Simulated scan of single mutants.
Amino acid sequence: MHYTLRQLEVFLATARHENVSRAAEALAMSQSAASGALAELERQFGVQLFDRLGKRLQLSELGRELRPEAENLLARAEAFEQALRGSEAAGSLRIGATLTIGNYLAVGMIAAFRERFPDAEVSLNVANTETIVRGVADYELDIGMIEGEMNHPRLETIHWREDELQVFAAPGHPLARRRKVSDAELLALPWIVREPGSGTRQTFERAMHGILPDLEIRMELQHTEAIKRAVEAGLGVGCLSKITLSEAFARGSLVPLRVPQRDFSRQFNLIVHRQKFHGRTLRRWMELCAASP
């Protein structure tokens, strides 16, 4: 064999960071050692894996073609090492989750996973749907847990669980005691909603089909808690997942508005790269997701 696993690690780290110095830092290597490993890999096979644009290294056409194979080779090597050690799940797992899932579901799941598999190294990146999809597609993340709909040629979508959005307001809002809020009343309200690119915004816009262009979007915020605080302050009404609102409803700081004529249902999904090797740690995480209520 004319290449080493270390060379593949340097190749993939450089692909992720687009910079040898940052790749070396991520691998706890010196820059000269990382540069040497990458240069030797290219020299041995007479190929160019990166286009060098100043200090930035961008994958060449061949590099992009080989990246999935390199990712899978390293994942299989890690799985082989786990099997040699007799470990059920001892590898690393990079999870990406959209904000509702990351802040209200994923942390508890990670705690349960680590309790069962203490040797697993689990990291969590919380961002909006677009960012998580990009991370899984670019092999920055092993698995994504998303709220939005997604159609990406390199990714597989696995249905996980049901969810529903809820329109809500401050307790003293004039519509708080209404049995039903009409579309005409929805159009008269100032709205505080999630930013474009988020799964929650995507579901909100679908639910408001037909009246969406005429809604008054007063504020667009990236964080669920900021939206809740703004609504509590009487700046407008909001629409978020019921998961994020249960505690506020229980203590009475926010109240639901009833909009039965609009469909706010949606699905939470798992996304994985179609070409990614599923090692033990990833498989055990997917099993945990499937078993969660």
Results as ranks from 00 to 15, higher is better:
Ala233Leu: 14
Gly252Val: 05
Arg229Ala: 15
Val259Lys: 08
Arg258Leu: 12
Cys239Tyr: 02
Gly238Ser: 05
Gly236Gln: 08
Ala233Asn: 11
Thr244Asp: 14
Gln261Asp: 13
Ile243Tyr: 07
Thr244Gly: 10
Lys228Asp: 08
Gly238Cys: 06
Lys228Glu: 14
Thr244Val: 11
Gln261Ile: 01
Lys228Ala: 12
Leu240Lys: 06
Gly252Asp: 08
Gly236Ile: 07
Leu257Ile: 07
Arg229Met: 13
Val259Thr: 11
Ala230Glu: 12
Gly234Tyr: 04
Arg229Thr: 14
Gly252Glu: 08
Thr244Lys: 01
Glu247Ser: 12
Ser241Cys: 09
Val255Asn: 05
Lys242Ile: 09
Leu240Ile: 05
Arg251His: 14
Leu257Met: 06
Gly238Met: 06
Val231Trp: 12
Leu257Asn: 07
Glu247Cys: 00
Ser246Glu: 15
Glu247Gly: 06
Val237Asn: 09
Val259Asn: 07
Leu240Tyr: 01
Leu254Lys: 03
Leu245Asp: 09
Gly236His: 07
Val237Gln: 08
Pro256Val: 00
Arg251Ala: 01
Val255Glu: 00
Thr244Cys: 12
Val255Gln: 07
Gly234Lys: 09
Ala248Asp: 15
Val237Arg: 07
Leu257Arg: 10
Arg258Lys: 14
Ala248Glu: 15
Arg251Asp: 15
Arg229Leu: 14
Glu232His: 13
Pro260Met: 02
Cys239Trp: 02
Gly234Trp: 06
Pro256His: 00
Val231Glu: 10
Leu254Asp: 05
Ala250Leu: 13
Ala233Val: 04
Arg251Val: 12
Lys242Gln: 14
Lys242Leu: 13
Gln261Val: 01
Ala230Asp: 09
Glu247Trp: 03
Leu235Pro: 04
Lys228His: 12
Lys242Thr: 12
Ala250Lys: 13
Ser246Ile: 12
Ala233Phe: 05
Phe249Ala: 02
Leu240Asn: 11
Gly252Lys: 10
Ala250His: 11
Ile243Val: 11
Pro256Gln: 01
Gln261Ser: 12
Leu257Ala: 06
Pro256Ala: 01
Arg229Gln: 15
Ala250Gln: 15
Glu247Tyr: 05
Phe249Gly: 01
Ile243His: 11
Leu240Ala: 03
Ala233Arg: 14
Val231Asp: 10
Cys239Asn: 09
Ala230Arg: 13
Ser241Ala: 11
Thr244Ile: 00
Val231Thr: 11
Pro260Asn: 04
Gly238Phe: 04
Arg229Glu: 15
Leu235Gly: 06
Ser253Asp: 14
Thr244Phe: 00
Val231Gln: 11
Arg258Asn: 14
Arg251Ile: 09
Gly236Ser: 07
Leu254Thr: 01
Val237Ser: 06
Leu235Ala: 10
Ala250Trp: 03
Ala230Ile: 09
Glu247Asn: 10
Leu254Trp: 01
Leu240Gly: 04
Leu257Asp: 02
Gln261Gly: 12
Leu245Tyr: 04
Lys228Pro: 12
Gly236Leu: 08
Glu247Arg: 12
Leu254Asn: 03
Gly236Cys: 08
Phe249Pro: 03
Phe249Ile: 03
Leu235Val: 00
Ala230Lys: 10
Pro256Tyr: 00
Ala250Tyr: 02
Ser253Met: 05
Lys242Val: 10
Thr244Ser: 15
Ala248Val: 02
